[in-house]
């Protein structure tokens, strides 16, 4: 019975020689690697928190729609059913004007609590 395999002995010798291979890092390689080391996007050009929030809901255009929908919901919530029907008719056939912060819009809102 053979105790060692000569082919494996040769291979072990090759492995040992390979482990001694320690190539020097050339200046060129180091320069290339450091040139690649660009920090990730910095905060210099980063948008602020309000821009981030705005992006989260889809930008100014979506914000306009959101405001309209919010006011419409508010209107439906506080208006009697008849008024809803009038609003629907208005949306389908006529121009609807919503006054932000108008006396009629928010003065009434204050009286809702006691229903």
């Amino acid at each position: 019975m053979r105790m060692t395999d000569p082919n494996e002995d040769m291979l072990d010798d090759l492995f040992a020689q390979a482990r001694r291979v320690k190539p020097p890092v050339s200046d060129d390689l180091l320069a290339r690697v450091l040139a690649d080391a660009r920090p990730p996007e910095t905060s210099v050009d980063a948008p602020g928190i309000w821009a981030g929030l705005l992006d989260a809901v889809g930008g100014w255009f979506a914000m306009g729609g959101l405001a309209t929908a919010t006011l419409a919901g508010l209107w439906i919530g506080i208006a009697p059913p008849l008024a809803v029907e009038e609003l629907t008719a208005g949306l389908l056939g006529e121009t609807v004007t919503v006054h932000l912060g108008s006396a009629s819009g928010f003065a009434d809102f204050g009286e809702l609590g006691d229903g």
């Binding site: 482990r19 291979v21 690697v33």
Partner: peptide, 27 residues
Amino acid sequence: AFANGDQLAARLLASRLLPRVLAQATR
């Protein structure tokens, strides 16, 4: 630290890691 913009950290990492990375690839 590098991710937070520290370029010195990149140099230190390169000096530590590049020799071993190059050796592994060369072998």
